[in-house]
Computed example of a mutant assay.
Amino acid sequence: MRPWIRKNSLSGPKLRSEMDAHEASVLRSLVASVLGMLEDRAGQAPQDDLAQLTGLRTGNATPPDIPAVRRLLPDFHRPDPDAATNADDESADLNGAMRSLHEPSIIDAKLAAGAMILRTVPESGGRVVLTPEQAEAWLYGLNDVRLALGATLDIDDDTPETLDDDDPRAPHLDVYHWLTWVQDSLVQALQP
Rank of each mutant, 00 (worst) to 15 (best):
P81T: 06
V31P: 03
L139M: 10
Q134P: 08
S17A: 14
G150Y: 01
E136D: 14
H102W: 12
A148N: 06
R78W: 04
E23W: 02
T54P: 00
H172L: 13
L190C: 07
W178I: 07
D75H: 01
L27S: 10
D89W: 04
V145T: 07
D93W: 08
E23H: 06
H22T: 10
S29Y: 03
A137Y: 12
R119C: 06
E123A: 15
R6V: 08
R16Q: 14
W181Y: 15
H172T: 03
T120G: 06
D157C: 12
L101D: 09
G126N: 03
I106D: 02
V128N: 01
E123Q: 10
T85K: 08
N143E: 15
A42G: 01
L118T: 13
A135D: 12
L173C: 13
K7L: 13
R2K: 15
L35N: 12
D49F: 07
D65R: 06
R6S: 09
V26I: 15
R28D: 13
P192K: 07
L186S: 09
N60G: 05
E123R: 10
P63S: 12
L149W: 09
P63Y: 05
G96E: 08
A83I: 05
Q44W: 02
D157R: 14
H102R: 11
A21C: 07
D80C: 03
P74S: 05
V121T: 11
M19K: 03
D165H: 05
Y176T: 00
T131C: 10
L179D: 05
S124I: 07
A148E: 09
P74C: 04
A84M: 08
Q52G: 06
Q183A: 12
L56V: 14
A24C: 04
Q44P: 00
D89M: 08
L72R: 03
Q44E: 10
R41C: 03
L149D: 04
T159G: 04
R127A: 14
P81N: 04
A32D: 13
L53P: 00
V129D: 12
G126A: 03
D174Y: 06
T131Y: 09
S17P: 02
L10Q: 13
N95S: 06
L149F: 09
L15N: 03
V182S: 01
P160S: 04
D165A: 12
E133I: 15
I5M: 03
L15I: 04
E161P: 02
E90W: 08
V69E: 04
A170P: 02
P122C: 02
W138Y: 14
L101H: 13
S105Q: 10
H172P: 01
T159D: 05
L30V: 04
Y176E: 08
I106P: 00
D89Y: 05
V121N: 03
A113Y: 00
W138C: 12
R71I: 03
D82P: 01
K14F: 10
L130T: 11
L111H: 02
I5S: 10
Q183I: 02
W181K: 11
L130C: 10
L30E: 06
D167W: 05
A51N: 01
S185R: 00
M116G: 07
M1F: 07
P81L: 07
K7A: 14
A24T: 06
G43Q: 01
I155G: 14
A24E: 02
M1L: 12
L153V: 11
R28L: 15
V182T: 05
L179Y: 08
M19T: 09
V121W: 00
